[in-house]
Simulated scan of single mutants.
Amino acid sequence: MDQGVIIAIDGPAGVGKSTVAKRLAARLGYLYLDTGALYRAVAWKVLQSKIEPADAERVARVLGHTTLHMQFQHGAMQVLVDGQDVTAFLRTPEVTAAASVVSAIPAVREWLLPVQRQIGQRGSVVAEGRDVGTKVFPSAPVKFFLDADASVRAERRHRELVAAGHGGALEKTHQELSGRDNRDRSRAVAPLMAAADARHIDTSTLSVDEVVEHMMAAVSAVS
């Protein structure tokens, strides 16, 4: 594929977006953009500021004195909030829960839109999230929408939490994913949905390598 293009990957939590996006970016020699990490960074700032994530007015105000930068080292994305590298804090259950709430606030989504598009201007980017192909990069020449059975997604997410030292009941993880799905799909601004021209991949029974091979075949078809 020609250098300079953007590949967009969307889908709900637990479908393997981050893993396959990183792998695909490495195969292509592209940058990997995790748009979800940006919402998590905002959530981290909100929590640090002792603000209730659902308080849209106060969350919007805190954006006015927040700086957000990304830097890429050896294919890995680091997120800096007000000059502090917060990458290591973005996957905790607390930040994850808060990110699900703040991401539904229109002011947050609008504030992050130019940040994401600025990275896309560099080209040669594999971007993953929940509205990448529909809102952030609607003109991306290659778009994927990943999905999987809800129970499979919950099991995957639960394994990630346990591996990161954040254990808990599988049923609780399943409930949290269901709530997140409902918020993502029903929010007023840029709800989670597949772009009309996205290629659908059900990852329920596929390995990471199999998903990446499907993607590589699609990329090669349009190169």
Rank of each mutant, 00 (worst) to 15 (best):
I51Y: 01
G75Q: 05
P53W: 01
Q71K: 15
T66R: 02
A60P: 05
Q78K: 10
D55I: 01
F72W: 15
H65D: 10
G75W: 10
F72N: 09
A76N: 03
V62M: 15
D55N: 11
E57M: 09
G64F: 09
A60Y: 03
E57W: 02
M70L: 14
L63I: 09
I51A: 01
V59F: 06
G64Y: 10
M77F: 07
E57D: 13
V62G: 03
H65Q: 09
V79P: 02
T67F: 02
H69K: 14
T67I: 03
T66Y: 04
Q73E: 14
R61P: 08
V81N: 08
L68G: 01
R58L: 11
L80R: 10
A76D: 06
H74V: 06
V79A: 01
A54N: 02
G75C: 07
H69S: 04
G64T: 08
D55W: 04
H74L: 12
G64I: 00
L68F: 00
E52F: 03
F72E: 02
A76Q: 13
E57A: 09
Q71A: 14
Q78V: 11
H69D: 00
V79I: 14
H69T: 09
Q71I: 14
M77H: 10
V59T: 07
P53T: 00
A76R: 15
P53S: 02
H74R: 15
V62A: 12
H69M: 03
A76I: 05
E57S: 08
A56V: 03
H65T: 05
L63S: 02
L80V: 11
L68W: 00
H74P: 01
Q71M: 14
H65E: 06
E52Y: 00
R61H: 13
A56G: 04
E57R: 08
I51M: 00
H65F: 07
A76S: 13
L80M: 15
